[in-house]
Design a protein around this nucleic acid. Structure first.
Ligand SMILES: [Mn+2]
Ligand SMILES: [Mn+2]
Ligand SMILES: [Mn+2]
Ligand SMILES: [Mn+2]
Lengths: 218, 218
DNA sequence: ATATATTTTTAGACTAATCTAAAAATATAT
DNA sequence: ATATATTTTTAGATTAGTCTAAAAATATAT
């Protein structure tokens, strides 16, 4: 049995080191989870006792095979629930996260697999993030940050790096959504902000925005 | 803020005294929740501090207006989730309870109201139990136990009193479901067991069964 | 290489929810 | 009405998860 709190730590480690395979520091976990480092150390010991993480004192933690699968299942659930909320229950992409944080801890294999089928086996969540399959595997799609795109180049919005309510609502305001066609017209030499064309409208986006939007070239 | 554990106690009190309006004993709650009486006393004090229950030492507890609404919302969520599981996610009526026990604690008003709409405002759950509305009101339908039905009388199965996996699976086996038309042929004078006709098949059901099946006369 | 700064761990305390055992209150039976 | 049985509460302990403050280990800078 993995507790709710343990699941949250596993997920944090999963997100911080690429799928938990590289070691992450106590402080990094503490910051991600908004707890204290001492709490993290305590929990790491419990996870190590359960063989869910590899832990060497003062050297950080990584996920074991078992821990990685457990973490991937939490992420799978989180993202599938987000799809249900948006596709079937009229939630917008900036409203789903807090509810999904709760739903990701519901324990029922049948439930999650039926949900997957009901939603037609989606490959991505409403923020463009990949949904792990039953075995924890994710489809790696190459995507780059908008900031990396050269002038006079076209691309399509495929994800967000920052999925805070504030950023998502800003994107709504400028009518940017997953699938939006973006034409990079130019970069302002002064501050590197980008002049882009979207929905036949020219607009200027800051480097902060350009560094939080994933795109693929067309 | 009402904790998960507090919600479970409120629900138990709600179920034991008609919607929590009549006082229920410490031991009754302990039995229902499979805990010890001392734990119940502790929790009752917390609920009383939060004005969710009326409590006089040694005299049992009843729900306050606020407590009754909180309990009704848990029941509402439990039953709406059960409908989703059965109607959309291929669960059978004997599989839903444990998952609904978890889902009933998810906190999101929008979620539960969207779910209600998505399911087309169901009035009953898969076991024939009424679903409280947003204000906690339930539609009282009169239903009687099959055991109360006289010989040579027709009725329709509308609910189960006992919703254990074992009983529900037995009902599946004899092809009894909500909506099934039942004709009471006779009662066996020896043991009060009933000879009924269902789906044009005659069969005999024990008094235990007859005392756990709700029907309405046609 | 040594001093200083940062990170991590340990020690000890707190809260929520539970338990066992004993004490107190209430109910029941003669 | 009194003794006995039952129910309920209290007292004290335990576990999971968290915290603060101090100690220990590691990293960084001169
Ligand atoms: Mn999310
Ligand atoms: Mn997401
Ligand atoms: Mn149920
Ligand atoms: Mn039910």
């Amino acid at each position: 049995m993995v507790t709710l709190s343990e699941e949250n730590y596993l997920k944090a480690i999963y997100h911080l080191g690429k799928q938990g395979s590289i070691a992450v520091s106590t402080n990094a976990i503490a910051e991600q989870m908004e707890t204290k480092a001492s709490s993290v150390t305590d929990m790491i010991k419990k996870l190590a006792d359960k063989d869910l993480v590899n832990y060497i004192k003062y050297q950080g933690v990584s996920l074991t095979k078992e821990g990685r699968l457990a973490a991937a299942m939490v992420v799978r659930k989180h993202r599938l629930w987000e799809v249900l909320l948006v596709e079937k229950l009229n939630f917008s992409w900036d409203e789903v996260h807090d509810v999904a944080e709760q739903l990701e801890h519901i324990k029922s294999e049948k439930l999650i697999n039926e949900l997957d089928a009901f939603l037609n086996y989606p490959k991505e969540d409403p923020h463009g993030d990949p949904i792990p399959d039953k075995d924890g595997n994710i489809k790696k799609v190459e995507k780059i940050l908008l900031a990396q795109v050269d002038a006079e180049t076209s691309c399509i919005c495929v994800g967000v790096k920052n999925s805070s309510k504030e950023f998502l609502q800003y994107l709504d305001k400028i009518k940017m959504a997953l699938g939006s066609h973006i034409e990079v017209i130019d970069k302002e030499p002064f501050d590197q902000s980008m002049i882009i064309k979207i929905n036949n409208q020219k607009l200027n986006v800051s480097t902060i925005t350009a560094n939080n939007l994933y795109v693929k070239l067309v």
